[in-house]
Every structure is written in structure tokens, then in C-alpha cells.
Design a protein around this nucleic acid. Structure first.
Lengths: 288, 288
DNA sequence: TTCCATTGAATGGGTGATCCATTTAATAAT
DNA sequence: ATTATTAAATGGATCACCCATTCAATGGAA
């Protein structure tokens, strides 16, 4: 197996690296008197440097979605690091949604695109870590949803309204057949469609990230208590009608009162509303 | 150095692992008829499993901020994986802001808390990857800021107003002394303080994530053209006065007109508004 | 006693060789 | 022409090291 040309780099180009730990030379020093103190100089590690370089190439437009990075063995040699360290960097970038790693011949590390679900994980982590509270999240959701409704009234296109209509029909089917958990899944999708109908992916992302967690609570509640929101599809239809008429006042009012009733449903028997239950369980369709 | 007791696990407890690739058994199948197709079954890799387990412990409350994970060598043995793979997982979690890794005796992997800046990186990546556009981001910022102003009017406390006041004074100093870039940094801080004054960390996080990138553009513009917003501190004072009086209408109006004038400033000479320049450069105080 | 220098163990950071599993294209057999 | 086989490329994972940093314990000097 010595035919493998060069990946093993027996000459170790990095063995004489004083350059690795070249450290940020703190080139500010004259820059920001407003900043109160010194930023901590976390010792710069190889994998951080690698992540940053790849992100830089991305920001510079040198790398674009669909592009393929060199094979791990080659890239490691180019960067003068071991393959293991390179992989730590690639893994991190993959978890961040920047890369997609594929095995096999014609495999490799490909620049990913179009993944708008990355904020969801951040939000979940924040909640798990106690950085944010359920209360703050719920409150934020109310406000964001209000904004989304207003934007949807202004920007929703026919296709968006049709998609919402189709969603409501699925909700009706699920209700009729008593598939309560499916109905929750429909709800989740309803809000996703509504967010998409704003025409702004940033807003949609934000909306999704706060909604995903909220729906986990609803899911946990419904699945444990068996109770479910009454006249859901009916309310959805009313709302959709207001949306179709671009009636902002009516649409926001309908949504607000709906949110309030959902909140009341969740809050009765608050013992079942365990943060841990809602966060830990992986639920169908709720891709992590 | 053979005194090292056990970390090397010479007996390789995992050499007979048929369990690793245990695969999600697709236990839905009866669950979600609403979902159109099959979700791709990305082959489950060890480091993903590890990340998930740690996050699960976190969600369950078994692990809390400040807690320390076992040393890499021990934990790798417990999980039945190599140390390298474990490190890939720990790296990913560190990049995600869940862990903090510290060297030395008494070092280890500590559960992190209180980092509200994680969304910023996500937003940057989305922009670099072209998943979202500058237009969408700017538009979202206008709307989010409007919401923030309304919430700040309702919830800002005296300490918040004082902090804003102090910030405006720093802005005046920077203006007087011609430190234009410092003034941009003050602006960034102004919005951060304003977001914090809503009393809702979720909203504040969202606000920060859209503002951080916007300020990069402003920074790039100011640093390349030398022009800067006229009468900035004065406008800030007017706004702060409205905020102090809880005058929502006045505050939102002042903010909106300010945003519009900033936008005009940015849009003249659009050639300088390179996405790449704004994203790629690391600027003082703008910790990535 | 007090204080400072030395030492050594614990721990993360990093390396290189090696093997396995998957994927795909090229090749051979039917 | 179709199908089975083979081989190469590539990521996935392991092992056995070594280095750098940190900090508590130790011990000697003031």
C-alpha cells in the first residue's frame, strides 16, 4: 500500500512549526476604548484556525454551495495538520450546517446550502442550558407571530394561501379520525407555512426556531393528557379568510386569541409541562 | 509511562460492536401521513451519537452549567469509542457553545452557560452560504427593531436607560475626537443595550444576530468612505427621551426615520457594500 | 514561619500509522 | 446487453504516542 503517493507526508512539514500558535497579535490596542476590559485571549487551536479559514473562503465567495473540499488526507497535508485535527474542524462545520460529508469514491466534504433549521438547535441548547427561559420563549413567540401575521397579510401569495388551505384540510382529516398527534404535526406545519408566506427567510427562520420548541410542549401535553384544542380547523379557516382579505386587524386578533387559548390549555395542570420531557424526547417529524 | 493505569483500554470493549450502527428503526411509519416522503437516513456516526447523548443529559437536567465531564480518556472508555472520536464530539459541542474546554490539571470539559451570541454565527453562515440575502436581513432588522423599541418602551428600567445614556455620552466623545470607527462600535453597543432593555433574552438574541451583521456593513462603509451619520448622538438623545417617556409612537417613529437615513447612507455608492468585505473582515470588538 | 522556586501529575492539544466500511467506476463473466 | 466482480477513493474509527499547560504539592531560602 505504499503506492499511495503522498498523503502520509513522511517529511512532516509542520514539525518545525513556531507559526501555528502565532496568536492574535492584539492589533487593536488603539481601537476600542469603549470596550471596558480585555477580551480573553483563548489560545488559538488548530481546528479553530481551520474552521475560520474555511468560513473565510466562504465569505469571500471562493467557496460556494455545492463545491467540494479536497479529500481529508490532501487537505490535512495542505494545511500542515494531522488528519485527526482536520476532521475535528470538518465535524464542527458539519454540525454547524456548513458542510455535508459523504463517504465513498466521489464522496468528500461538500459545501451545504439552504438549511434554515440551524437556529432551532441553537434555541434548544439555550433552553437546555438555562440561558433563556420558557417564559421568554413564549413571550417572544407571541410577538414574533404577531409580526409574521402582519407580514403575511402584506406579502402572502396565492400559492402560500393554497398551501395553508391544504394544511387545514389535513388538520380536519386528522381531527375526524382522532389522530391527535398528527394534528399537532399539522399545527407545526401550519406555522411553518405561515412563516414562509412572509417571503422573508430570516423572519421565517426566527419564527420556526421559537415555534419548534413550543410545539414540543403542545405535543407533550396532547400525548400525555389526550386533550386537544377544540374547533382548531374552524379557527384556522377564520384566520385564513382574514389573511386572504389582507385584513391585518382581524388576522392578528384571531391569532392572538388563539394563542391565548392554547396557552390556557398548556397551563392547566402545569406539572405535565416539564421542560425536560419536552426537550429530551425526539418526536416524529421533529428533526433535530 | 506504563503506570497510566487504564486509559488505553487494551481489551478494546468495542471491537465487537454490531450495536454502533443500530440505526433509527424508523419507528414512525404509522405516525405522520402528512409528511410527504421518507426522511433521509443519514448513517449514524459515533460522534453524532455522543453529541446527542450529552445534549440529552443536558435536557434531562442531569448535566447543568458548571458541571464537568469526565476526562477525555475516561469518557472515551465509558462510551466505548476512541479518544479521537470523542474529541470530535466535544469540539462540535464547544463550537455550538455548549461546552468549554480547559487545559491543565483541574481542566476538562465544562458545561457552558449564558452565551447568547450563538445565533450570530448561524446568521453569518446563512448569509455566507447564500441561504438568506442581505435584503431579507435588513428587512427583518427593521421589523425586529420596531418590536424591540415597543417592548423597550414597555419594559425598560432605569438602569437600562442609564446605560443607554452612558453609551450616548461615549458616542459624543468619539464624535468630538473624530474616532469614527469607535462611534460605530458605540452604535453596535447601543442596539445591544436597547435589545437588553426589553427584558427578554430571546428577543435580545434575535436582535443582536441581525444587528451584528448590519453593523459590519456600516463599519465597512465608514472605514472605506470616511463618511459618518450626521447628528448621531443628537438623534440618539431624542430617541432616549421618547423611550424614557414611554412614548411608543414617538420612539418608533424616530427609530424608523433613523434607520431610513442609515439605509440611504449605505446605499449610495453601493459598490463599497460588498458582502464579502463585510463578512470576511474581523473587526475589533466584533467577536466571532 | 513565610514565601517563592521546583517538580510532577492530570488533562487537553496534536500526530502518524493503520485498519474498516461504503461508494462508485471499471472490468470481467454470463 | 446485462450482471457480477474487483479495485480504488474516501470518510469513519482506532491505537499508541508525544507535547504544552496548568496547578497542587513539595521543599528550600529568607
Amino acid at each position: 500500500m505504499s503506492t499511495k503517493s503522498s498523503p502520509r507526508t513522511p517529511a512532516r512539514p509542520r514539525s518545525s512549526t513556531p507559526n501555528r500558535r502565532e496568536r492574535v497579535p492584539d492589533h487593536r490596542a488603539a481601537g476600542a476604548p469603549a470596550a471596558p476590559a480585555f477580551r480573553p485571549i483563548r489560545t488559538r487551536r488548530a481546528f479553530e484556525e481551520i474552521c475560520e479559514r474555511i468560513r473565510e473562503q466562504l465569505a469571500l465567495g471562493v467557496l460556494k454551495p455545492g463545491d467540494k473540499l479536497p479529500p481529508e488526507r490532501d487537505l490535512a497535508q495542505q494545511l500542515g495538520v494531522s488528519r485527526n485535527v482536520l476532521r475535528e474542524a470538518l465535524r464542527s462545520l458539519e454540525m454547524a450546517g456548513v458542510l455535508r460529508l459523504q463517504k465513498g469514491v466521489k464522496g468528500g466534504a461538500f459545501i451545504q446550502e439552504g438549511d434554515t433549521s440551524r437556529m432551532n438547535g441553537v434555541m434548544r441548547d439555550m433552553l437546555s442550558l438555562g440561558t433563556i427561559s420558557v417564559r421568554e420563549l413564549s413571550e417572544a413567540r407571541v410577538h414574533v407571530l404577531d409580526l409574521v401575521v402582519r407580514l403575511a397579510c402584506a406579502n402572502a401569495r396565492k400559492a402560500d394561501l393554497d398551501a395553508l388551505e391544504a394544511n387545514i384540510r389535513r388538520t380536519e382529516d386528522a381531527t375526524r379520525e382522532g389522530r391527535l398527534l398528527d394534528r399537532v404535526e399539522c399545527s407545526r406545519e401550519f406555522y411553518k407555512l405561515l412563516a414562509a408566506s412572509t417571503g422573508n427567510k430570516v423572519i421565517a427562520m426566527i419564527m420556526d426556531s421559537v415555534t419548534e420548541i413550543h410545539m414540543r410542549f403542545v405535543y407533550a401535553k396532547v400525548s400525555s393528557s389526550g386533550v386537544a384544542m377544540a374547533r382548531l380547523a374552524e379557527k384556522r379557516r377564520q384566520f385564513l379568510a382574514a389573511l386572504g382579505e389582507r385584513n391585518v386587524a382581524s388576522a392578528t386578533r384571531l391569532m392572538r386569541t388563539h394563542l391565548e387559548s392554547v396557552q390556557r390549555m398548556l397551563e392547566q395542570d402545569p406539572g405535565a409541562m416539564s421542560l425536560h420531557v419536552a426537550l429530551a424526547e425526539v418526536q416524529p417529524g421533529m428533526r433535530r
